[in-house]
């Protein structure tokens, strides 16, 4: 359905925006390396089913590969800035202070409690959903601490948040048309969108209505 495709496309757009801008400008200011590392972890644990070769469709398989590849490439590019632009890189690391273990630990526990089957694949899948819902936190934390963000960062976060928001009508659609209700995805998806809601409001006020982007 349309919401799902638009959601996937905005997800792809967010990564492309990030990739292209970092590649072109060699700048990493405002981008959280920790959030990006968490996304690599999210994609690698969620798309483990690629290894079972029970592929759903060409689209599904290709997108999974693209997402894993692009998220790894982002890390490579950020690491490249370490040499190209060491001052900005150090500044980013210095401000990227939210500790990953406080996110990964609880997500692992939640995956052990909430899962469809106690198998490695299903546990990893559940873990990836929980982790994805909070993976943006180091980035948002960094934003709220600095109070300012480049337009790259804001467009990136907006496209990323839009993707999860679009998945909500997709689930409603699928509930009525396919009688499908995937509780774990829906719950973590709602959680993730909720974390973005504050950001969306500020984005709307500042970027859509003009001028710069500043957090209170």
């Amino acid at each position: 359905n349309i919401f799902r495709i638009l959601g996937d496309l905005s997800h792809l757009a967010s990564i492309v925006i990030l990739l292209r801008t970092v590649q072109k400008t060699q700048r990493v200011d405002g981008i959280s390396l920790k959030t990006q590392i968490l996304y690599v972890l999210v994609f690698c644990t969620r798309y483990l089913d690629l290894l079972t070769f029970r592929w759903k469709s060409v689209y599904n398989t290709l997108m999974k590969m693209v997402f894993i590849g692009a998220s790894v490439r982002v890390i490579q590019l950020i690491q490249g800035c370490k040499i190209q632009n060491p001052v900005a890189y150090k500044d980013m690391i210095f401000r990227d202070t939210l500790q990953i273990k406080y996110l990964v630990g609880p997500c692992a526990v939640l995956a052990l409690i909430f899962n469809y089957k106690f198998t490695l694949l299903e546990l990893c899948w559940s873990f990836s959903l929980w982790l994805e819902s909070v993976a943006i936190l180091p980035q948002l934390f960094m934003l709220s601490r600095s109070g300012k963000a480049s337009t790259l960062t804001t467009h990136y976060i907006f496209a990323l948040g839009l993707y999860r928001a679009l998945y909500i009508p997709n689930w409603i659609w699928r509930y009525y048309s396919e009688d499908r209700l995937e509780k774990l995805s829906v719950f973590t998806g709602l959680l993730q969108t909720a974390l973005y809601s504050d950001f969306f409001y500020i984005y709307y006020k500042k970027v859509v209505k003009g001028a710069g982007f500043e957090l209170p």
């Binding site: 996937d8 599904n60 999974k64 089957k117 499908r180 995937e182 995805s185």
Partner: peptide, 10 residues
């Protein structure tokens, strides 16, 4: 319990 729903979303 396993709901039998395939993980077909990204």
């Amino acid at each position: 319990a396993h709901t039998g729903i395939e993980h077909d979303e990204l």
